[in-house]
Nucleic acid binder design. Structure first.
Lengths: 335, 335
DNA sequence: CTGATAAGCCGAACCGGTTAAGTAACGAAG
DNA sequence: CTTCGTTACTTAACCGGTTCGGCTTATCAG
């Protein structure tokens, strides 16, 4: 069963190959009658465009790329990514685009992947996550001319198109919340400092702490559950009455540590998580968290990448501000 | 900066395009000297093959496909998949293959994707997950002639190449464990019955229950945390002293329910989870689980797909048997 | 010394589309 | 009636590789 080509359609319709191409791509140059006939025949023969051929001549691959510079292990731990990818997918599917996913060890390998993709013309655009401060990927993508949407704060995106959520506002809301409950001594278990979003939160945390006159300490980790547990043990020495975590995995790990030490949540300690996945709702007590529609976020990023391809000016789009969902792990401070 | 093509290399080396192609692909037809010269020039010019062109003429896309028929929401919840994908990736990267990922709503859409991929020749092979009993994808893939590796028990794979882990042995180990602790009344919170692996576990569970003379009940769910919590509440009416879960997410949700009702784990109830992700190690108490190297599993599946492309006979490969890791949620039954 | 064989390489067709340039037909404007 | 501009096509080049038939030239058996 040899596959149907445009040539076969042309033969059956009695027109040239070129005309068929125009008809199938909704471009001017054919009459309405001819176009209708071509479309009918194409449908009858169940024609599907050969992507390789199209890519070769039109220099479009109808594929977007996403590189994750993480170990497979962190990917297992972070429920975040699959949801994000799912959201991206939902938009790509509407445009019959595919997503090429690559998991690499580090930023260097990620840059190599971009270079390779650009040279091979294997992707029409890329989605860049885990933005850093002074991110080395930005100049590379600029030089390669690879259309891209960065996922992160405009302060980090250096005028590249980006989609972001307002971590500053979210962090402020979190601290206002714990302060309003009377907590004075706060600990923060943060992600790796080289991650741009962690840096943004660091700033927001410090400035809120000053404004509210709190006593605070920040511990940076690698985002893993184990590191979150260790950091929790350490900061407890400072006798905080509230702990704010940079992701939900560490918050859950921290909760277990706290309970293991015989402390009660929320009676002795208020916990706030970030990235509100199911985890925060299935622990006992349930966790107050900065909630985040990860799937919608991914979808928005996908849409923006199509806009960029369509020639939109590079812009920063605020997707949303994480919403503070107050649950059982929050309580008034009792000394 | 126009990209380097084979033609440019040919010009510089003073040979024909065809000769360059042979040289670059390690095929006979050129002398060792010429080959070396071509390779040197190609490296100098930083030539990268244009995948579209290669795909068009050689009918290879150097891409594998993976379709997930799940809602984005379940993908967020299941830490399983990202790790699996990461494992697959690690093998594909070695062969400079890409992975095309598609998230669709249901099996029908998944079948449509396979048909499309086959027609467009967009992938060289596919990885099929979430095998069903009498899976409708198997005849479709056979008819399309799309190389595939199924992830699941040979009993479900109908002589297609597959990679599996021995769920029967794992379930047997789990029940031997709880029985050896003196538990007599066991509940099982299972996944959706249409999933092949759940069916396999159902069989194994029933047969072990009979062999050990236990009293047991099984509740099927959709694998979600909420369903796991509900099912836990329901089965508690039967006063079980041990509960076995089909994934770790439901186990964690179940733990919260149990603790919320004032029951103590493991004093009043022994819990066993499946798919030992970080979750099982960060709860308090930590959870006994059937542990599973998901990343390695993915890698093995990737390797087998390359074997299939290389013409290997369709075979079933046992990757491993999930290992029972006994943690704090296990204790001797005290009536 | 001759004829057969094979290695090494060339030229060109080919994969299946896209697209610039060219052409014929026709209607409107001058 | 000529001129010009559209519309609706056709033709053919092109994208960047792969691959096959055929042409040289060297090798070797007879």
């Amino acid at each position: 069963m040899s596959h149907v080509t445009i040539k076969e359609i042309a033969r059956r319709c009695g027109v040239s190959q070129g005309a068929v191409s125009y008809a199938l791509n909704n471009r001017p140059g054919v009459s309405a009658a001819t176009r209708a006939r071509v479309l009918r025949v194409a449908a009858e023969l169940e024609w599907v465009p050969n992507t390789a051929a199209r890519q070769l001549s039109a220099a479009r691959s109808e594929t977007f790329g996403l590189v994750l510079a993480r170990t497979p292990q962190t990917l297992v731990e972070e429920p975040y990514f699959m949801g994000f990818v799912g959201g991206v997918e939902s938009v790509l599917a509407e445009h019959a685009y595919a997503l090429s996913l690559q998991v690499v060890a580090d930023l260097g390998a990620e840059l190599a992947t971009y270079r390779k993709w650009a040279a091979e013309r294997r992707v029409d655009g890329v989605i860049v996550v885990d933005l850093r401060v002074g991110d080395p990927r930005i100049p590379v993508l600029r030089k390669l001319g690879l259309p891209a949407v960065l996922v992160g704060d405009p302060a980090l995106a250096e005028d590249m198109p980006c989609v972001w959520t307002d971590s500053t506002a979210a962090m402020t809301a979190a601290l206002d919340h714990v302060a309003s409950l009377g907590h004075q001594v706060i600990a923060r278990i943060a992600g790796p400092p080289e991650f741009g979003d962690v840096w943004i939160r660091d700033q927001a945390f410090d400035s809120a702490v000053r404004r509210l006159g709190l006593t605070a300490v920040t511990r940076h980790t690698d985002y893993s559950a184990a590191a979150g547990a260790d950091a929790t043990r350490e900061v407890l020495a400072g006798r905080p009455t509230a702990i704010v975590y940079d992701n939900d995995l560490m918050a859950v790990a921290g909760l277990a540590v706290v309970q293991g030490l015989g402390l009660r949540v929320p009676d002795d300690l208020t916990l706030v998580a970030w990235d509100d996945s199911t985890l925060c709702r299935i622990t006992h007590p349930t966790l107050t968290a900065l909630s985040h529609n990860v799937v919608g976020y991914g979808a928005e990023v996908g849409r923006r990448l199509f806009d960029v391809l369509a020639g939109a000016r590079p812009e920063a789009h605020l997707y949303s501000t994480p919403l503070l969902i107050i649950r059982e792990s929050s309580a008034r401070c009792r000394p």
